[in-house]
Structure formats: C-alpha cells, structure tokens
Design a protein around this nucleic acid. Sequence first.
DNA 1: CAGGATCCGAACCGATACTG
DNA 2: CAGTATCGGTTCGGATCCTG
Lengths: 107, 107
Amino acid sequence: MGDQQFKSTVELTLKVIGGKWKPVILCHLTDGVKRFGELKRDMPEITQKMLTQQLRELEQDEVIHRKVYTQVPPKVEYSLTDHGQTIKEVLDVMALWGQGHLERRRG
Amino acid sequence: MGDQQFKSTVELTLKVIGGKWKPVILCHLTDGVKRFGELKRDMPEITQKMLTQQLRELEQDEVIHRKVYTQVPPKVEYSLTDHGQTIKEVLDVMALWGQGHLERRRG
DNA sequence: CAGGATCCGAACCGATACTG
DNA sequence: CAGTATCGGTTCGGATCCTG
C-alpha cells in the first residue's frame, strides 16, 4: 500500500467509525440487535438527536442495518451488518492500545 | 476487560490519535525523525497553527518527542517515542479496514 | 416509541499578521 | 525556522419542544 493511500484509508476509517459517539454505539451493537430505546438507555449521556444522527450515518456507510417494524407503537431495530462485524477487531486493537496508554500514564 | 472499560479505552485512544490531523502526522513520523518544516511540507493542506497545536497535544500525551536545538536559525525535531511506536499497529489495522471499506463500496 | 425541528453555545479550524 | 496572536467562519453538540 502506498504512503498516500495508507493515510487516506486511515482517515476514511476515522470518518466512518471515529468521533465522539460512533465507537460507543458500535461497542453496544457488538452485543447484538438493539432497539433505539435500548441504545438510548445504554448511553444515558447521549441526546436523542445525536443518537439518531450518528445511527443514520452509520447506516449510510452500511456498517449497521436499520429494521423498521410498521406498527404502533413504532419499533426500530439496529444491528451490525456483516461488513460492520469486521469493525470489532479495529475496536479491539484500539481498546488494547488505550489500555496500554492508561497503564503507562499511571505507572 | 469489562464492557465499560472497553468503551472508555477505545474513546481514550481516539482522543489521543483521532481527529483530522493526528493520524496523518503520526503516519509521517513513522518514517523517522522530522523537522517542523519537513512535516509542514509533507502536509501542504495543514496550517502552521494546526500543526503546532496537534504536535503539542501529541507531545503532552507522550506519543511524540520534541527536541529543540538552541541555535539560529531554530531547529526542532519531532519523533515518535517508544510508546508512540506502538501506535503503528493501530494505524495499520485502521488502514486495512479502510481499504476493505473502500473496495466494498466500489464492488 | 422513535423520531423531526429549532435554537444556541462551544469547539474546531483556517487565514493572516507578527516575532525571537 | 519555528513558532505565537488574533479574528472569524463553520461545524459539532446539547436542550427543548413537537409528532405519527
């Protein structure tokens, strides 16, 4: 992989799964299918607006799937796509590095 | 690793190496020691202000080292710390995932 | 229940000018 | 050469209110 391409793919990855909320959302979705309200309960700090917005973007990037049940009251389920599943290892590596970083700054 | 801890270490990693410029800067520093002006030339799109700012933050997080030569004209060299070297694999994994993401959206 | 719409402050980022 | 200082635009994020 060329140097320029390396940089741009790293940037692309951060555009798709970076930012304040997306990694957290993705972590929760690694547990399996979740409803909107469940995700909201899992992340009390996030606002409804942000949650909706970030979910839409993840959906556009085909990282998560949005399944709408046409019923009253509404029900919407979110889950990782097959492609989205592959993000787990990226999150794992990031978690490991963060872990090492923490320990290093303490000891 | 607990679920909460997993999330927070992922977030920590993104705080340290995430954002618009840091990954690019780190990519360039994987080549070895670079002077300020070299980095600036490597990244024509970044402003001097942003480059300085991001370098300071990376230095504070002990990811890069800043060596000042007290001379005229000034000379400052930046390099990855030993700890910073460990970021390479994180960048690698992100680059790989981005690569796959690209190919998937084309095919 | 799962959102859409609106308003507003904060943070991010860039352009420019200046300096030891 | 390697910055610092200042200003202004844009984007991000949160609070609040409204709806099928």
